[in-house]
Design a protein around this nucleic acid. Structure first.
Lengths: 243, 243
DNA sequence: GCAAAAGTGTTGGGCATACACCCATGA
DNA sequence: TCATGGGTGTATGCCCAACACTTTTGC
């Protein structure tokens, strides 16, 4: 796909895609950011933003979401959940954002409508390796600082959407967890989502009841306390039980 | 607002707004449609579509949603819930839709990205009167026939979104019900939303427990059975109890 | 008086909550 | 042996679901 990029035409300078990619490093929830580098009066300033770009004339929006994400981060093959479209007149009014649009995309626009997508990755050695060639950073969602455009708003909306999504579709949690996970990891993630602490015993009980969370024979190794059992998520059972 | 319409400039020919407006006529849920009239080889063909139009260069999207709805239906002052943006290449590919865009909006476009909003009105004499000057029709949501563009998809998504929305925000139901309503009306609406029948006694009980559904002294009149009590929705109590 | 819908209570089961102690392991 | 976190059972209250008959009214 990357080979054809140069030949294609932007739909226009007004419609873009941004992707909020979440990952869970077994302690906390992190979000993927790419640099927004601006040359302001000869001084290089770096902000951060979500990966995204203008869509092409001949591609569907979700296609554009996948393409821009891969171009900017190397990540591909993830599910994308469209959560909101932003079209405020003022969202592209900060001087540094305007300069960036001109210097980087080589376009002059008064406004850009952007459709935001949310996706989830397993934040493991695999993903860290495949994104190594790109200037991406993973930042704890509670500590992103000031982002470009209205991306701080995007993040808040993305997290709110994420919390509701999990209600309807707990499957999402297993997109974030490693293939083998402990109940502690699952609980840490769940507590972040619900924003409250869970009772250890009750949580354990609830997980055992869910047939699609299946215990493995493996346990943790090298921990200086009793080793926790690993569990895995069974998609087949999940689809059966939830119709 | 309508006076300035002619002087303003479309942002471009690629971004539009469509509004799915739901109303409840005390029996069933209906949706508001406007005609899409096309002159095809001298023959006038009429389809139906949701009210909507291209946005202006200098207006926010939600502003555009309110404006287009008022221009096409006279409805104003309603809440608007953005639920999805549609950008498939093929969504404006049907010949009749292309002709309509050319004949009515006088534009030639390959594709239009549209952001869809959902809103709710009390389907009473008031709204029927204020929309009388416009060519609007109210059609049962289960029986809309073939709509223009991808508007059948929009409707399905709108209804799915509506159902989830009510979960988080039961207030929506009272935007649809008349100011004075009976428990039967509320239950009919609720059953449509949940797509299953509710037990009469359990439902009654649940409603009585909700402090923001307050019984009135009035009863139905002229019914040939025991008259039902009217209830009203108290927003103040609602906001208190739901923080 | 009859047809049609309103209104009204009780019971049982399942689910969420609250709560404290022993176990396995590495240092 | 100690520090650390893993793993387990029981009792209680609440909410939800199931279920049938009497009341009011117009015709």
């Amino acid at each position: 796909m990357r080979d054809t990029v140069q030949k294609r035409q932007y739909a226009n300078n007004h419609i873009s895609i941004d992707s909020v990619v979440l990952g869970f490093d077994e302690q906390q929830l992190k979000v993927l950011l790419v640099p927004q580098q601006v040359n302001m009066d000869g001084k290089i300033i770096i902000y951060r933003k979500f990966p995204g770009n203008i869509i092409y004339q001949d591609e569907d929006m979700e296609e554009a979401a996948h393409r821009t994400l891969e171009e900017l981060t190397g990540i591909h093959g993830v599910s994308m959940y469209q959560f909101k479209t932003y079209g405020s007149r003022n969202r592209t009014s900060k001087p540094k954002d305007l300069i960036w649009l001109q210097q980087t995309l080589n376009i002059k626009v008064e406004r850009i409508v952007t459709t935001a997508y949310l996706s989830f990755v397993k934040l493991d050695a695999n993903i860290l390796h495949s994104t190594k060639r790109y200037a991406v950073t993973w930042v704890p969602v509670n500590n992103v600082g000031e982002l470009a455009f209205d991306h701080n708003t995007l993040l808040n909306d993305a997290l709110a959407y994420f919390r509701k999504l999990v209600d309807y579709c707990p499957l999402i949690m297993f997109e974030l967890l490693p293939r083998k996970f402990t109940i502690l990891q699952l609980r840490t993630l769940y507590e972040f989502i619900c924003q409250k602490e869970m009772d250890v015993r009750n949580f354990q009980k609830k997980m055992v009841q869910m047939e699609y969370v299946v215990p493995m024979d493996e346990h943790e190794e090298g921990v200086r306390h009793r080793a926790a059992r690993f569990y895995k998520f069974d998609k087949v059972i999940y689809n059966k039980t939830r119709r």
